[in-house]
């Protein structure tokens, strides 16, 4: 089993934020993946998807799935992150008031992803964009 999916995400489009995560969740359910693993996958993906909507101009989500692992790559065009170490700290956020009104922007997204992923790599070029690579082992429920 090897499957690939790609989704486009528009910055600022909170109406559709979560659509890609929702589709991936449905697919994993159909494949009979353990519900605890599904939750870890979609929490990572949803937080990352919301980050693109909240902070970037646009982005692409690539999801690659094989029998053991789901690999997700979220690449955005946006302002980038100047200090990744600082961005990874709980409570640090540069989110706008509009994003906070949507229930996000409390500096929990990246730490949430880190807590749920088996592998999480974040790279960024200020002024260009940010890329998140997240992998989760589909056969182990515990982090």
């Amino acid at each position: 089993m090897a499957m690939s999916f790609e989704y486009k995400v528009e910055g600022g489009d909170f109406t559709h934020a979560g659509y890609a995560s929702s589709q991936v969740k449905k697919m994993l359910k159909q494949l009979g993946v353990d519900s605890t693993v599904i939750k870890r996958v979609v929490v990572c993906l949803y937080e990352a998807e919301v980050n693109i909507v909240a902070h970037a101009y646009s982005g692409t989500i690539s999801v690659n799935l094989d029998t053991d692992t789901i690999n997700m790559k979220l690449a955005d065009k946006g302002p980038g992150i100047a200090d990744i170490e600082q961005a990874m700290q709980k409570g640090f956020s540069t989110a706008s008031p509009e994003v906070r009104e949507m229930g996000f922007g409390a500096g929990m997204g990246l730490p949430n992803i880190s807590a749920n992923a088996d592998r999480f790599v974040i790279t960024s070029e200020p002024g260009t964009g940010t890329t998140l690579e997240i992998s989760i082992n589909l056969n182990s429920a515990a982090v």
Binding site: F14, T15, A17, G18, S21, S22, K25, K39, V42, V43, Y46, E47, V50, M102, G103, F104, A106, M108, G109, N112, A115
Partner: peptide, 28 residues
């Protein structure tokens, strides 16, 4: 984001935040 950290079955979410992301967060 706080809701997304919770692991519990048969959970009721009590909130004053009413928008589409509230529904999406519950889904996730």
């Amino acid at each position: 984001s706080d809701v997304l950290t919770v692991n519990c079955d048969s959970l009721l979410l009590i909130t004053g935040l009413a928008n589409l992301q509230t529904i999406r967060t519950a889904e996730m």
